[in-house]
């Protein structure tokens, strides 16, 4: 692995908070360097003149796909709740949000 310091610095703890992802100090240090080097590589995109170029969100464009507004059967509630870590009375249980 390249040990040169990357030109790009990212605020990993801030991003981890945005992503609701707890990281160890070791992961913060590791990812900071690795993502910085990835961004250094990505920098080459700046060589290109992209003025007037439309962005591509999907390669094969489809527009306004509208289905019939019909009533169809859903998966049974019990089947879905079987996968929940904690549930009761047909609801997902989570820690208390408000005191």
């Amino acid at each position: 692995m390249s040990t040169d310091a990357p030109h790009h610095a990212v605020d990993v703890p801030y991003l981890a908070r945005l992503a609701r992802l707890e990281l160890t100090q070791e992961e913060i240090d590791l990812f900071g360097g690795q993502i910085g080097r990835i961004l250094d590589h990505v920098e080459q995109m700046n060589k290109l003149d992209i003025s007037g170029i439309e962005p591509t969100a999907h390669a094969i464009s489809v527009f306004d796909v509208i289905r019939e507004d019909g009533v169809t059967e859903s998966l049974p509630k019990a089947t879905i709740l079987e996968n929940a870590p904690h549930n009761a009375n047909g609801l997902f249980l989570v820690p208390k949000v408000l005191d």
Binding site: M45, L48, I50, I53, P55, A59
Partner: peptide, 12 residues
């Protein structure tokens, strides 16, 4: 992200 989507157009 937006720049990457534009370069994606060039690749396409």
């Amino acid at each position: 992200y937006l720049r990457a989507q534009k370069v994606r157009t060039l690749i396409r």
